[in-house]
């Protein structure tokens, strides 16, 4: 017996789904931790929380997030201004790739935040985005959630 085995299979051989069930993916925290706090490690924040204006970004973002003003965020003008002033000093860091950006809106987040009233739904959606499924599937899921 050789040490390398080869099996050829046909489409029909694999027509049935596998009998093996893998454990569900471990949920990864999204933008918000279960505690409701902001997750600064969220990959969704890109380098924002770690860049040269990371602290200013966090201040402004936190202010907005926790704002109880009506409308929300109206009490964060100063924090935003500070952030903006900081970012203006780093044009190459903060002014990149708008075109790219235009194509890369985040529908999940958008859809989600637009009907931002239900936290539960938001979390579900964030998880759907983090689920280990491929992109198309994720997209469908997001749509499904959004259409609820």
């Amino acid at each position: 017996m050789g040490k390398d085995k080869i099996i050829f299979v046909t489409k029909e051989d694999h027509a049935e789904k596998s009998k093996i069930e893998l454990p569900p993916s471990e949920p990864q925290p999204g933008l918000l931790l279960p505690s409701g706090e902001i997750n600064w490690n969220c990959p969704c924040l890109g380098g924002m929380a770690t860049g040269p204006c990371g602290v200013e970004f966090r201040d402004a973002f936190s202010c907005f997030h926790y704002s109880e003003a009506e409308p929300k965020g109206t009490d964060c003008y100063d924090a935003f201004k500070t952030m903006q002033e900081c970012m203006a000093q780093y044009p190459t860091v903060y002014n990149q790739n708008l075109d790219e950006d235009k194509e890369s809106g985040m529908p999940g987040m958008d859809l989600n935040l637009d009907d931002n009233d239900e936290d539960e739904e938001e979390n579900e959606n964030v998880h759907a985005e983090y689920a280990d499924v491929d992109q198309d599937e994720t997209k469908s899921k997001q749509v499904a959630v959004a259409n609820k």
Binding site: S25, Q28, G30, L31, C42, P43, C44, G46, E100, K102, E103, S104, G105, M106, P107, G108, M109, D110, L111, V126, A128, E129, Y130, A131, D132, V133, D134, Q135, T138, K139
Partner: peptide, 13 residues
């Protein structure tokens, strides 16, 4: 990374 779906360039809303 599939675990970083937020970054996926998808359709612009």
């Amino acid at each position: 990374d599939p675990s970083k779906k937020l970054e996926c360039p998808q359709q612009t809303s």
